[in-house]
Design a protein around this nucleic acid. Structure first.
Lengths: 161, 161
DNA sequence: GGTGCAAATGCAATATTATAACATTTTATT
DNA sequence: AATAAAATGTTATAATATTGCATTTGCACC
């Protein structure tokens, strides 16, 4: 069974991510400001990629003032630059990185049904890409792999439906 | 040396693509209308992915009338549905498919310098993705692989610069 | 404590990409 | 010609993202 399908204490997911982010920023001497923290919390609220404007809506709920788009995009740029979130190009959306300690692009399995996205941490795909690229003399910099399909849990649900 | 770097008769590239498209549409009994043909020609004008609005500009040059966005998007939808072009999500752009005869998503090597994109035709990457996905019980439907880097030709140019 | 600088944020406007809704025209078929 | 379906035209607008400039904040230095 898929790990996302298991009952998991998601608050713990969020707390871990926030703690890790705080520590990482401290180590790197960069500022984890209130806005950046709020945006990261939004991104981690679910395992589904979230759009910039959806984040904006969430921020608007939490305070009386509604931030302008650049506020959100700047926070996202910061988080992207520091590997705390990834951008899913095919969805124009953002998702928390599950291992910000080292820079990487990440490969994603995106379920078309529940919209959850899972970050893979295998080298298999990168190796394959490098092999194929090398055959053409191409030097890989940032591979982008976003696989849409159906997650284990949703397959299960569909079978029982 | 990279195939795109070789002097290649690009007019021939275009002609081949157009002929193939015409034949494919005839076989499938679908209409290769003037607009669709013009849009496909724009897409094939270079080996660089082109955006919908850039296509629109090209069409505006070629005739006195300027088509509206839906005109271009509808033509693109038709071409996408029939596998004649691919969409590069990370660039919001479109590129001609080099083998429209069978449906596939295509993997792309995109050069950050010359902006050319090359479609790969290996199974290595799909296998790797399937292997990784299967480990998580995930059923792959449409893999999206867009690798940004530096093509052989641009590496060569940079070395000599 | 002030001063000045750089980073971060606020804010208004606008650019870019894409779609919705409905009218009109074209095409194929009867 | 009559009809229906497909394709295109047209207007408006949605959704995503950035630019440019003003203001505020945090921090090193005197």
């Amino acid at each position: 069974m898929d790990e996302l399908a298991k009952q998991h204490n998601h608050q713990r997911c969020i707390d871990d991510a926030m703690t890790q982010a705080r520590e990482l920023c401290q180590r790197r001497q960069i500022k984890f400001t209130a806005i950046r923290e709020q945006v990261l919390a939004c991104v981690w609220a679910k395992h589904q990629p979230i759009g910039a404007y959806a984040i904006l809506e969430e921020l608007a709920k939490d305070s009386t003032r509604r931030p302008a788009p650049p506020t959100v995009y700047r926070a996202l740029d910061f988080l992207l630059d520091n590997g705390l979130v990834h951008r899913i190009a095919s969805l124009n959306a953002f998702i928390g990185c599950k291992d910000p300690s080292h820079h990487h692009q990440g490969h994603f399995l995106i379920c078309r049904h529940c919209r959850n996205a899972m970050e893979l941490d295998t080298d298999i795909i990168n190796s394959a890409i490098n092999t194929a690229a090398t055959q053409h003399g191409f030097a890989v910099e940032t591979p982008c792999v976003e696989v849409v399909g159906c997650c284990a849990n949703c397959q299960e649900l569909n079978r029982n439906a």
